[in-house]
Write a protein that binds this DNA or RNA. Sequence first.
DNA 1: CTGAAAGCGCTAACAA
DNA 2: TTGTTAGCGCTTTCAG
Lengths: 345, 345
Amino acid sequence: MARQPTSDAIARPGPPTAHDVARLAGVSQSAVSRSFTPGASVSEKTREKVLKTAKELGYRPNLIARSLITQRSNLIGVAIPHLGNPFYATLLEALSEDLAEHGYRAMLFPAPMSAFVDPLIEEMLSFRLGGLILVSSSLSSGLAEECLRIGLPVVQVNRVSSRGTVSTIVGDNRGGAAQVAEFLVAGGHERIAYMAGLEASSTNHDREEGFTECLARHGRSLSHRVVANYSAEQARDHARILLARPDRPDALFCANDHMAIAVLSVARAEFGLVPGRDISIVGFDDTRLSAMPEFSLTTFRQPVIEMARDAADVLHRMISAPDAEATRTVLPGELVIRGSARLPG
Amino acid sequence: MARQPTSDAIARPGPPTAHDVARLAGVSQSAVSRSFTPGASVSEKTREKVLKTAKELGYRPNLIARSLITQRSNLIGVAIPHLGNPFYATLLEALSEDLAEHGYRAMLFPAPMSAFVDPLIEEMLSFRLGGLILVSSSLSSGLAEECLRIGLPVVQVNRVSSRGTVSTIVGDNRGGAAQVAEFLVAGGHERIAYMAGLEASSTNHDREEGFTECLARHGRSLSHRVVANYSAEQARDHARILLARPDRPDALFCANDHMAIAVLSVARAEFGLVPGRDISIVGFDDTRLSAMPEFSLTTFRQPVIEMARDAADVLHRMISAPDAEATRTVLPGELVIRGSARLPG
DNA sequence: CTGAAAGCGCTAACAA
DNA sequence: TTGTTAGCGCTTTCAG
């Protein structure tokens, strides 16, 4: 591997630096830097010469060094829960593509869905990231303030926090859940149950509240309520118990599709129930699976793709305009009626 | 940008630096650095003092600056295709967790499954990443050599390349496919078809070869062959055509579960076929979906979790021992017999 | 064990 | 338009 220590271009290990290019091109090192900076002041001749020798040497600007001086990287930390839930898988994919379009890169932080992700963020901060996207998780108010203080833009997706210092993008959890309730009541169901997600989450809170409040407006209330923490496993377990009861619900609204599909599967395979006839099951999200004929899940669609795009856009805006206000976006969704729940009328 | 040359602890923007801590703790900046370096030579007293004031100030070492000098980051670039395929979603999740265990972080690069990912990698290289994990994609030989030259460890998962300069982790594609062929022949099928994935991929190549060679040993050959490029959509389209044929196959081996499930769904929903009775469908991977009663897909299991762990381990080893040889790992799998294919005998 | 000093590769004033 | 000069925040010799 040892290179010949020739006259000028001596062999150091590692990739070539701007200095190497400068020497070989007979210009100053700053000329090299400028040649790689979009709006910089360089003559076309110089830039060409530089770019040419850069290519010869295989030179690429060191982004680490760049962000050390510019005090910000184009790295965006993305905290996202369990990718086994297709909603998150889709969101992450869209997110990383949208970020890439703005010139950012996603740094992945697998995060539990639970309330706070402070320890994670602590680590993120050491990277001097350009921004943070928190999917279904929140910062403690302390950390949120620290982010604000050091000027680190944060956007939360699919979760709202009480503090107003971070931007949020959410679906219409409350309204969507109300539409589901409306639909279920109109369908003439007798015993309407709710399967909760993570109780500490704002999504669950809003969906449950929207659901039960609408029920209440019809003079109805929940026949059963179980908590499955957005986990498919727990959803299955609860389904086995719930469906075995003599007074089992004839309608079950699950706080997300991931659980709804697990429940639906158990209902059919283990209890011989026909969804949409013997029992109505409704989810929330409208993931890829839900549309398959095997599940044909009635659900409230969240516009994942738009949520991702909005998140990337908002973050980009915050990064570009450092003292912009935090924004709150609520994206509308729609009730998608399929076969898993009895129709009204 | 000009800062106020105030007395001592002036208010600068941005996070505190090692200097700030040093001044406040009454030690040198190097002492601060050492206090944060695991095996460094500092007295317990100094370290304590430093750590204490560091906490007060909310100081965290700047990893960007660190990796500028150490010439390597703990960032691992992960190129991975479509997360809509649960196999990849699971792999990515496991991967990022395993990497985290070694102290690395995953930088996400959404990559097409197609043969080469050179342009992507080009960009990765500017980040001076610590290593690269390529899932289902390859480097051109030119780039592979450049990585080798600059000492960047690369491991490919679920794909092998002709060049021996990068480490690879794959499942037993050939052997697995042969087992499927064996199983299908024993099941007494008349017209056995193959749905190919991406033709340029080594996985497809190996699976197809293993499958047809085993068939040949039994004096059999493919009745049909279609190419769906590992895409669920294309799989559906092909299924519609294939199943409408008068000489439609009575057995179809799909190069992965993602396609197999799409086919199965079409067969049942649109052609009224009962998988396992009217037609046998077999996949490859054994994703989470395949085990659901709705699909009950017979398939060859690839040990995703182990693949991820191995990839992280191998990469870690390569990073720690810079001149280690590239390794090739073939992980065994197993035929998982469920209901979607007729049983022998 | 500790501090001073020299950079890592780059950008950003500042002069020329 | 250019080159020169300082650093960005840190690690790492090198003296002491």
